[in-house]
Design a protein around this nucleic acid. Sequence first.
DNA 1: GCATACTAGACAGGTACCTGACCATATTAG
DNA 2: CTAATATGGTCAGGTACCTGTCTAGTATGC
Lengths: 165, 165
Amino acid sequence: MSRDPSVKRLRLALLLRLLHREYAHDIEASLAEAGFGDIRSGDAKVFPFVPPEGIAVRELAVQAGVRKQTMAQSVDQLEHAGYLERRTNPRDGRSRLIVLTERGRAVRPLAAGMGDRIERRWAELTSPEEFETLRDLLHRLLDRIGQADPDAAARLTSLDDSHLD
Amino acid sequence: MSRDPSVKRLRLALLLRLLHREYAHDIEASLAEAGFGDIRSGDAKVFPFVPPEGIAVRELAVQAGVRKQTMAQSVDQLEHAGYLERRTNPRDGRSRLIVLTERGRAVRPLAAGMGDRIERRWAELTSPEEFETLRDLLHRLLDRIGQADPDAAARLTSLDDSHLD
DNA sequence: GCATACTAGACAGGTACCTGACCATATTAG
DNA sequence: CTAATATGGTCAGGTACCTGTCTAGTATGC
């Protein structure tokens, strides 16, 4: 793992931010190309987690690693755009079941594969081994941070899907 | 680099986001602890780049890796809170020079060291070698993305400080 | 069987970024 | 020296998250 001293050592935070932004741009481009330009990149994360029988907003939030309020906002957007519906949950009056509409079902396979495709493309830009190493290192670092700091652990619960909020 | 199959493989985007959020939380905690609770984490990035003779907003933005509009917002905040001033630039009527106030100068050394301290702490949570590898891999991946895609390259100019906007 | 938690979701508001359009000043080219 | 162009800064508006608080339903404990 050679270190090139001619390259300015950028702050880690900047590297993380730039890479995350590229990811979002890629998602957006994929959606637009497939004719779903009205889905915003942040909302695409919903689709892979909506099963045919429906799912609660809270559970969706845990799966996607965001707060329930953030997920509720995405669900609002997608409901408005006609990709999904909120149904009452006959088994729990507080909860509502999110289900895909016809239109939403058309997006599902695309959305599920999108993240994989981007990661595969990136893996090929360096090397698959290098990319897996990168993922492992990020994961390990997050785990260690969570172990070292209970507050951080609470924020990182999405890693082991205990509860959020 | 052992890969533990029992750990759920999280989407790269989620790992990046969570780690970036932890970084921001740490910055915030450091500021609050040092008595600068009125500085928001995103604005802290300004301090390390303001030299005694002053600097233009645009140049600050390049250094920090954000758009000039974003930097202008941070400068507004910090000016309001009394950490810096905008002076007219005698050499260019369009430009204004950002300089630290007395109060701002008190923050500078702290702000400059904060990022380093967090990175050092994180490096110790795994191992310094592992952390440097992580940084290198992030950097390499960004470089490759920039090489492969001119559009991405344009967004990533902060890596080689050519122009933004 | 009713008071006391606990939960799902909604509502309000904030942060750290982003894009696009615009204006005033500076630079350059004919 | 003027016209075209480039640049620094601002204004307006949007996105993807966040925190805190509230309400309405549900589950539990005596």
